[in-house]
Simulated assay, not measured.
Amino acid sequence: MIKRIWHGWTTPENAETYSEILTNVVIPAIEAKAIAGYLGIEVLRRDLESEIEFITIMSFRSRSDIIAFLGQDYERSYVPDVARTVLKRWEQTAQHYELCTKRSHKE
């Protein structure tokens, strides 16, 4: 499994708007592409002093599935225009990691 990790930052005033765009527009658009090997997405949020950081972690079965999503330049960030309107800044590329170990604790 490959994890695709990307960071974006927005102002405190735009954080809720960006969260809604991500949840209601960007993620559904990705899911609508029906990419073989796309396993899901996680969104993390961290409030900083003067901005809000968002991290997305997308899961794919293989690197070739990411290439099916973005093409040969698969490391470039995927930031639709609607998201760009409220983001303050974002990483131009995403990082890709192979999942080596996953453990869960059962209660």
Rank of each mutant, 00 (worst) to 15 (best):
I2T: 08
I2L: 12
I2K: 15
R4Y: 10
I5W: 05
W6T: 08
W6E: 02
W6P: 01
W6Q: 08
G8R: 00
T11Q: 06
T11V: 12
P12W: 03
E13L: 11
E13G: 09
E13N: 11
E13Y: 10
N14Y: 03
N14H: 10
E16V: 11
E16R: 12
T17L: 09
Y18L: 08
Y18S: 09
S19Y: 07
E20L: 11
I21P: 02
I21A: 08
I21S: 03
I21T: 04
I21C: 04
T23D: 05
N24T: 10
N24Y: 06
N24M: 07
V25L: 07
V26W: 01
V26M: 13
P28Y: 12
A29R: 13
A29N: 14
I30L: 13
I30G: 02
I30P: 07
E31D: 12
E31N: 13
A32E: 08
A32P: 09
A32S: 15
K33P: 00
K33Q: 00
A34S: 15
I35T: 09
A36W: 01
A36I: 10
G37M: 09
Y38W: 06
Y38H: 05
L39Y: 03
L39T: 04
L39M: 14
G40W: 00
I41Q: 05
I41R: 04
I41K: 04
I41T: 12
E42G: 13
E42F: 09
L44A: 09
R45Q: 07
R46T: 01
D47L: 09
L48A: 14
L48Y: 03
L48D: 07
S50N: 13
S50M: 07
E51I: 08
I52W: 04
I52T: 12
I52C: 13
I52D: 03
E53G: 12
E53P: 03
F54R: 06
I55R: 07
I55Q: 01
T56M: 04
M58F: 02
M58C: 14
S59I: 02
F60Y: 15
F60V: 10
R61Q: 13
S62Q: 08
S62M: 06
S64E: 14
D65G: 13
I66A: 13
I66W: 01
I66E: 06
I67K: 09
I67C: 01
I67R: 05
A68P: 08
A68G: 06
A68M: 02
F69G: 12
F69A: 12
F69Q: 04
L70W: 00
G71E: 02
Q72V: 13
Q72W: 01
Q72D: 14
D73H: 10
D73F: 00
Y74G: 06
Y74E: 00
E75K: 15
E75A: 14
S77G: 14
P80N: 09
P80E: 02
D81A: 15
D81C: 05
D81Y: 10
A83N: 06
R84H: 01
V86P: 03
L87T: 11
K88G: 00
R89I: 02
W90K: 01
E91C: 14
Q92E: 11
Q92V: 11
T93P: 03
Q95Y: 05
Y97F: 15
Y97T: 03
E98H: 14
E98P: 06
L99C: 09
L99M: 07
C100K: 12
C100H: 05
T101A: 12
T101L: 13
K102C: 05
K102P: 05
K102L: 08
R103M: 09
S104H: 08
S104F: 11
H105E: 08
E107Q: 10
E107P: 15
